[in-house]
């Protein structure tokens, strides 16, 4: 438990210090309330050079009780996320470092967000959770991809 407290202090320090590596990525990363560090929310900026550029994307992070031995559970919530490796209905993310097999206890929440940023930059249509977007990507139709993402972000259902 004290590990997440330490991590919280560290994250506060990094975000206040405007660490350059994260200024372009993290809008917000904080526990939902200060008395319960097991439930976090994060907001990240869509990376430039992707269709997500200019949008803010919300995430919820649940810390398991045996963290950091078990990986944190990260989801795109509360808003739906159009991405080929994200389940559109549940927000579940298909990312290996968030699974039991590939997680390492030496990583922290900042690493996780960095990995998610990388996933946004480099979608992997070979292992899709959103087949429609994966198909568009496989065909290399960049315009349709951008259009679809923007459609959802700008109020599509």
């Amino acid at each position: 438990m004290s590990r997440i407290v330490k991590e919280y202090k560290k994250i506060k320090k990094v975000l206040e210090g405007h660490g350059e590596a994260f200024e372009n990525l993290i809008v917000q990363l904080a526990p939902v309330n200060e008395y319960d560090l097991l439930s976090w929310k994060a907001t990240i900026r869509g990376p430039s050079d992707t269709p997500y550029n200019g949008f803010s994307i919300g995430l919820t992070i649940k810390i398991p009780s045996d963290y950091p031995i078990s990986p944190p559970m990260v989801k795109f919530e509360p808003y739906k996320m159009p991405h080929c490796n994200v389940n559109f209905q549940t927000g579940e993310i298909c990312l290996d470092i968030l699974t039991r097999q590939h997680w390492s206890p030496a990583w922290d929440l900042l690493h996780v967000l960095k990995a998610i940023e990388q996933l946004l930059q480099e979608p992997v249509p070979e292992s899709p959770l959103n087949v429609d977007i994966a198909n568009i990507l496989k065909e290399g139709d960049r315009t349709a991809y951008t259009g679809l993402v923007r459609y959802y972000f700008c109020g599509g259902t």
Partner: peptide, 29 residues
């Protein structure tokens, strides 16, 4: 989806260095 495989940029593969302490972590982190 794998970010650890070797064909990926090494940002997330963390330190390879055997001396261990300072290594190529995510830039600036």
């Amino acid at each position: 989806t794998s970010l650890i495989r070797s064909d990926r940029p090494k940002e997330l593969r963390l330190c390879r260095n055997t001396q261990a302490k300072k290594a190529d972590l995510v830039d600036g982190m």
